[in-house]
Design a protein around this nucleic acid. Structure first.
Lengths: 340, 340
DNA sequence: CTGAAAGCGCTAACAT
DNA sequence: ATGTTAGCGCTTTCAG
């Protein structure tokens, strides 16, 4: 426009600025900012003070071009309704940051193609990737392994895919739920699952059903909620409880679903909990402790799961991705409160 | 180790691989992958098929070195307890992605230094930044503007900092709450705020108190919860309600706090809501609709706020950062349910 | 221990 | 419309 240069992006201060200021070479500057390099104390001092003066910070992108490391970890997430995932994100970012890694998060909950999203994330040269979205496919896994990008499937159990997985033992969790119901005398049991496609819904139901059958009981009614939300839980509960009025217990695939079920039972149907109807949730979110719900639920050790995930990623990033595949199923535990 | 090259990071396929495969120059490949470049149909065809065959994807990092654009937007977040922020993150990532931008999220809830975190994010050459964490400081803002990185403060109102802000009009929201209480005959009002340092807590209380005083009332009791959580709400409510047993209404700075307050009132103190005690929340999270709470609350237009934030960022990223500063305060609305 | 030089993968003038 | 040439900001041999 005018003669004044219109720097849309004002120029950052670069290593060469620092080098000039300190009267040394560019490589000297680089060495000072490279952990394991050999620099004399005097050199380090000179460079550091020049850098400080100019407020210099190495450009990670440029660095990554040589080092092939970005310290970026892609997180592909589909579940933006379950409060558990806010906790998960909190833990992920915290653990990653403490290892000097950063989270590049990608939302695929609007029905985006997971494989395509993963590719876009890979274009940033991520050092690792965690997928907490339903669809895991072998092509995706292959692509990552071809590029040497460690990948872990978080909180899902892909059936035939060869990939690292960190997940709660949902099947055992389902069995645990069944046993708790049975021990307390409940016999007419129903199940409210999540969207049909999810592995979590599948395994929780499977374990629950199996344990029931081992005790000579059968699962009387089953319905899949359209989402893992309170409202979907209400809708599902309304349908299940009216079509199976004889039910005396309902196992819900997550806590939000359980809240919806409880409210339908109490306020629409006038049932008392746990007297007329026993309820069990899954996850143990913060509000499960609320007096209004006091939900008995199956807790997954989210903290440990996230830590493990980041550990696996971190280990592979630093030691190479040729370690054996790991499938970690974390044991769940029963948290007894007042709905059973 | 052996003679076999141990490619920790298997080599990606690069533009030059594609060029060789297609029998053209590297720049030709680059042009095909650059939106506004002039390439013949035949060339495009040749390159595209070679790229497809090799499964080539341009390296964003390398590209950014020349273009000075990364399509990365840093999101600095402190609030990983309020479910509202999961929704916000959902909206942010969705809107950003639809503009071809990606979210680099940084967690500062563990007491990390916001300025230092922002600098780390900037090392990735982010094209923009949104800060949804308490501490906004002029140095940080200056640093961004020096580097031409558009910045918006989201859901907070820094007092003396010259920065773009997108925030709910918390003060008006507080007034709205006060008026609702007054109209319904409540006269002995208390307030439960969030952590003292937050601008949201400050403005919500300010508006509430002012509107009360304009009507000749005074705010009888005030307490700041230690966090915006259910448990903190319980603790605060317990303290406030026992020290001020005459209160007939409590305005809570967010919905989780309100849930805690309701449960203490109902289950510890045996009060009926809204008969003995009226409760008002803030945010309108999903569970506010739950039968167990049916919370009357002040809704902030989160969807619009996020959209605006991304629009501002997007506009500045494409048109340069020399647009006038914008301070947008979004009107809140009263959502009437059953606690008032 | 330090500097010079090459190059990471890509884009952007500049020629043709 | 296409290829050639120079870098972007940094790391990393390689000499000395």
């Amino acid at each position: 426009m005018t003669e004044i240069e219109k720097n849309a992006r004002a120029q950052r201060v670069t290593a060469s600025d620092v080098a000039r200021e300190a009267g040394v070479s560019i490589s000297a500057v680089s060495r000072v900012f490279t952990p394991g390099a050999s620099v004399s104390a005097r050199m380090r001092e000179k460079v550091l003070s020049a850098a400080e003066k100019l407020d210099y910070r190495p450009n990670v992108m440029a660095r990554s071009l040589m080092t092939q490391r970005t310290a970026l970890v892609g997180i592909i997430l589909a579940n933006f309704h379950n409060p558990l995932y806010l906790t998960a994100l909190d833990l992920f970012t915290t653990h990653l940051q403490s290892r000097g890694l950063r989270a590049l998060v990608f939302n695929v909950s609007r029905g985006d193609d997971v494989v395509e999203s993963a590719r876009q994330v890979m274009q940033y040269g991520v050092d690792g990737m965690v997928i907490a979205a339903a669809a895991m496919s072998q092509p995706l896994v292959d692509q990552c392994s071809r590029q040497g990008i460690p990948l872990v499937a978080f909180a899902r159990q892909p059936r035939r895919t060869r990939v690292n997985v960190v997940c709660a033992d949902n099947e055992a969790g389902g069995r645990l739920a069944a046993r708790a119901f049975i021990e307390r005398g409940y016999r007419q049991l129903g199940y409210i699952g999540g969207p049909a496609a999810t592995s979590t819904a599948y395994f929780r139901e499977k374990g629950f059903r199996q344990a029931l059958e081992e005790s000579g009981l059968t699962l009387l009614g089953t319905i899949n909620a359209s989402a893992y939300t309170y409202d979907a839980g209400r809708a599902a509960a309304e349908s299940l409880l009216t079509s199976h009025p004889n039910l005396d217990g309902v196992f819900c695939a997550n806590d939000l679903l359980a809240f919806g079920t409880m409210d339908v039972a109490r306020y629409r149907l006038g049932l008392s909990i746990p007297g007329d109807l026993g309820i069990m949730g899954f996850d143990d979110i913060e509000l499960a402790t609320a007096d209004s719900y006091q939900l008995t639920t199956i807790r997954q050790p989210l903290q440990d799961m996230v830590k493990q995930t980041v550990d696996i990623l971190g280990q592979r990033i630093s030691e190479g991705d040729d370690l054996p595949l790991r499938k970690l199923l974390f044991p769940c535990s029963l948290v007894e409160r007042a709905t059973l």
